[in-house]
């Protein structure tokens, strides 16, 4: 009798409730059996197409969290699931941009071959499509014309662009970024941030989800739609903030908006940065 009624999921229409693409449930991590907890009961979920930034004080376990999400590191307890499937190994739907391009790029390969690397062993993609994906990824990050250079011949910012292009060529549904702009100068960083927004725009139709781990508050607000603030270790989600800033974003005007400042102040509060500042002055 009950089967006569349509289920909620059958009614899925634009605007209907869709289950999250990524679920992180009660995640706990200790590196040694008797060691300290790095993460404690960390839970959150991400919807398809979201741009989520995870921000926390340095050393709070952000990178550990990201490595568990992408299946490179097994959690001590709890689980990460992708569309309801538990992640035990790196899933083919994810790509990761590492923090340090000097360590993650392959210096012996040209830019083009670095970008092609994720596809090199794939037998299910034709040669022509590989070439097309590589060319598109290189173009998206603005490196057209540098295909035959080696990473060592490029500036830091350009190398990180190569790393982003490499992840894009894989056509992930979820793009993970581990402090991708932590080792470039401020000006280069702004350019890379805008490239990331352009990438998102470019792959918006395919619903690419982005998960950025950073310790840079302004970067998180500028890029993400949603910010998860992690606590000090053992880390858990201390606060979740929605960011409602108008698109297209602009490095000058967006950062000057009252909403930007409001979120900034809130994150400072949650991370205890304001408290430290106030604490340095005697209370009135």
């Amino acid at each position: 009798m009950a089967t006569d009624f349509p289920r909620l999921t059958d009614l899925a229409e634009p605007g209907a409730v869709v289950p999250p693409i990524l679920n992180v449930t009660e995640l706990r991590k200790r590196y040694q059996a008797d060691g300290p907890l790095v993460c404690d009961r960390l839970s959150f979920s991400v919807n398809q197409g979201d741009f989520v930034a995870i921000i926390g004080p340095s050393g709070c376990g952000k990178s550990t969290l990201l490595r568990m999400i992408c299946g490179l590191l097994p959690p001590t307890s709890g689980e990460v699931s992708l569309r309801g499937q538990r992640i035990d190994a790196p899933p083919p739907e994810m790509a990761l941009v590492f923090q340090d391009y000097t360590r993650s790029l392959f210096p012996w390969l040209t830019v083009e071959r670095n970008v092609k690397f994720p596809l090199a062993e794939r037998g299910d993609i034709t040669k022509a499509e590989k070439a097309e994906r590589v060319a598109e990824a290189i173009k998206t990050v603005g490196l057209a014309g540098f295909e035959d250079y080696h990473p060592g011949e490029l500036s830091g910012g350009m190398q990180q662009r190569v790393a982003i292009a490499r992840a894009l060529a894989f056509r992930p549904q979820i793009l993970l970024l581990d402090e991708p702009f932590a080792s470039v100068d401020a000006l280069t960083k702004e350019g890379l941030e805008d490239t990331l927004l352009a990438v998102r725009e470019r792959f918006a139709d395919s619903g690419m989800t982005m998960l950025l781990v950073t310790h840079d508050i302004d970067e998180a607000i500028y890029l993400a739609d949603r910010i998860l603030v992690l606590s000090k270790p053992p880390c858990h989600v201390a606060e979740e903030l929605m960011v409602d800033l108008p698109h297209p974003k602009n490095q000058v005007s967006t950062r000057g908006m009252p909403e930007f400042q409001r979120i900034r102040a809130r994150i400072h509060d949650v991370m205890g940065l304001s408290a430290q500042r106030d604490g340095s002055q005697p209370a009135a």
């Binding site: 490595r67 992408c70 490179l72 790196p90 083919p92 994810m94 790509a95 990761l96 590492f98 340090d100 360590r103 993650s104 392959f106 012996w108 690397f117 994720p118 090199a120 062993e121 490499r166 894989f170």
Partner: peptide, 25 residues
């Protein structure tokens, strides 16, 4: 470098492919 091996693992390369494409070079 562990990062290089992690990159290859992320993209689903087999152990042998990781050795050939990452460790050896």
């Amino acid at each position: 470098r562990q990062e290089r091996i992690d990159v290859a693992r992320m993209y689903g390369l087999s152990r042998l492919a990781i050795i050939r494409r990452v460790v050896l070079p």
